[in-house]
Amino acid sequence: MNVDRLVFAIAGCFILLSVTLSQLHSIYWLGFTAFVGLNMLQAAFTGFCPLAMMLKKLGVQPGNAFH
């Protein structure tokens, strides 16, 4: 798996987890969902993604989206 696919997979897991926690524990978990969504939106326009940078430093093969 390359960086691009891992970023999408991890973001999707975070969103599903936070939505589930908002239903089971507290509605305030939706703030985390909003944070992940906003980070994905800004990464689409700027190309800056902290998770992609961390994955690259861990040696994951880079993809086309985050150079």
Results as ranks from 00 to 15, higher is better:
Met40Trp: 07
Lys56Ala: 13
Lys57Tyr: 04
Leu17Trp: 10
Ala52Tyr: 05
Gly47Thr: 13
Ala11Pro: 03
Ala9Leu: 13
Phe8Met: 11
Thr46Ile: 09
Leu21Gln: 11
Leu58Ile: 05
Val36Arg: 08
Val19Phe: 04
Gln61Tyr: 02
Gln23Ile: 04
Leu38Pro: 01
Trp29Arg: 11
Pro50Gly: 12
Phe14Val: 11
Lys57Asn: 07
Gln61Glu: 09
Gly37Thr: 14
Thr33Asp: 03
Phe48Tyr: 09
Leu30Glu: 00
Thr46Cys: 02
Gln42Cys: 02
Phe45Asn: 10
Gly12Lys: 11
Gln23Val: 08
Thr20Trp: 13
Phe8Arg: 14
Ala9Pro: 00
Leu41Lys: 08
Leu6Asn: 13
Phe66Arg: 06
Val3Pro: 06
Arg5Thr: 14
Cys13Gly: 08
Leu24His: 03
Leu41Ser: 12
Lys56Leu: 06
Leu30Arg: 04
Leu58Pro: 00
His67Thr: 08
Phe14Cys: 14
Leu17Cys: 10
Ile27His: 01
Ala52Trp: 05
Val19His: 02
Asn64Glu: 09
Ala9Phe: 10
Gly59Thr: 12
Val19Asp: 01
Gly12Gln: 04
Leu41Ile: 15
Met1Arg: 13
Cys49Glu: 05
Thr46Phe: 00
Leu38Arg: 02
Arg5Glu: 13
Thr33Leu: 02
Arg5Trp: 02
Leu6Ile: 15
Gly37Ser: 15
Leu17Gln: 09
Arg5Gly: 11
Ser26Val: 06
Ala44His: 07
Leu30Pro: 01
Gly47Leu: 03
Arg5Lys: 15
Thr33Val: 15
Ala43Thr: 15
Val60Ala: 10
Met1Lys: 12
Leu38Tyr: 03
Leu38Val: 07
Ser18His: 07
Gln61Ala: 08
Ser22Val: 03
Gly37Met: 10
Ala43Lys: 11
Ser26Thr: 08
Ile10Lys: 07
Val36Pro: 07
Gly63His: 05
Phe66Thr: 09
Met40Asp: 02
Cys13Ala: 14
Phe35Thr: 07
Trp29Phe: 11
Ser26Phe: 01
Ala9Cys: 11
Ala11Thr: 13
Gly59Ile: 12
Ile27Phe: 01
Leu55Gly: 02
Leu38Cys: 05
Gly63Met: 10
Gly59Pro: 09
Ile27Leu: 04
Phe32Ala: 15
Leu24Lys: 13
Ala52Met: 02
Gly31Met: 08
Met54Asp: 03
Phe66Asp: 00
Leu55Arg: 01
Leu58Arg: 11
Leu16Ile: 08
Ala9Asp: 12
Cys13Glu: 05
Met40Val: 14
Ser26Ala: 06
Pro62Trp: 00
Leu16Glu: 09
Ser18Phe: 06
Leu21Asp: 00
Pro50Glu: 02
Asn39Thr: 14
Lys56Ile: 12
Ile10Gln: 06
His25Trp: 05
Ser22Thr: 04
Ser26Asn: 09
Phe45Cys: 09
Asn2Trp: 03
Leu24Trp: 05
Ala34Cys: 03
Gln61Asn: 06
Leu6Arg: 14
Asn64Gln: 08
Ala52Ile: 12
Phe32Ser: 14
Ile27Lys: 07
Val60Met: 06
Cys13Pro: 00
Gln61Arg: 15
Trp29Cys: 10
Gln23Thr: 10
Ala34Gly: 01
Pro62Ala: 03
Met1His: 12
Phe8Gly: 10
Gln61Thr: 13
Val7Glu: 04
Asn64Lys: 12
Gly31Phe: 04
Phe8Asn: 12
Phe14Ile: 12
Leu24Val: 12
